[in-house]
């Protein structure tokens, strides 16, 4: 594992910790998209089915379990927690997730390495992760004055993707025969989706203003 991959994973971990901290400390999930969190849970469950039959390292196993449990925990907070659930604004979080999940499944059934259940589900998770942030970005755009922690959460999540791009470039240069086109193309699209957000996040940070995205 190279430094970019590790930094990427840590940024991903940190983003989730920031999100849980925001929800737990403010007892509010204002500005957090339940749809995106549900998509992430679906991404993690379909990708990490290999927990049941293959072992890579203790590190990988721990991280996979953490991602599954933490997204489950966020969903539980938003749906079930007595006070947090009251702050969820379902009227704003209206993205149709089937419009994302169905095309991803059709693509996974068409473009994959192996037509097996686990391989198709793994490919589906790669495609779905690329677009899972969209409901969250749409919700942020509808929210005037995004709170700092929610902004930081999305920024860290995008940062994790950018570090993975560097990880792949590093691996291409150092590992002969290393290639994974499905992951590279999906990952590049995923990172590109954050460009606009990055621009406004950095702008508001430099001007010392609260983040608000133009609609």
């Amino acid at each position: 594992m190279n430094i970019f991959r590790f930094a990427g994973d840590m940024t991903h971990l940190l983003s989730i910790i920031v999100l849980l901290l925001k929800i737990n400390a403010t007892k509010s999930c204002a500005g957090v998209s339940l749809k995106t969190q549900e998509l992430y849970l679906l991404v993690f469950v379909t990708r990490y089915l290999d927990l049941l039959y293959s072992y890579i390292s203790l590190y990988n196993t721990f991280m996979k379990l953490f991602f599954i449990c933490s997204s489950g925990c966020v969903i539980w907070y938003i749906r079930e927690h007595k006070t947090v659930s009251q702050t969820y604004d379902s009227a704003q979080d209206t993205f149709r997730v089937l419009f994302l999940a169905c095309p991803c499944m059709i693509l996974a059934l068409t473009v994959n390495h192996d037509f097996t259940v686990t391989e198709v589900l793994w490919t589906f998770s790669i495609y779905l992760e690329a677009v899972a942030i969209l409901p969250q970005l749409v919700l942020l755009q509808r929210t005037k004055n995004v709170d700092t922690l929610t902004g930081n959460y999305v920024f860290l999540l995008g940062g994790y993707r950018a570090l993975y791009l560097l990880n792949w470039i590093y691996r291409i240069l150092t590992e002969p025969g290393y290639r994974q086109w499905i992951v590279w193309i999906s990952g590049t699209i995923q990172t590109a989706i954050y460009c606009d957000f990055f621009y406004y996040y950095i702008k508001s940070w430099r001007n010392n203003e609260r983040l608000s995205l133009p609609s």
């Binding site: 890579i56 990988n60 996979k64 390495h113 990880n167 290393y178 290639r179 994974q180 992951v183």
Partner: peptide
């Protein structure tokens, strides 16, 4: 086989 290595990432 190289494609399988992709699964060492998260």
């Amino acid at each position: 086989a190289a494609e399988e290595d992709a699964k060492d990432e998260l």
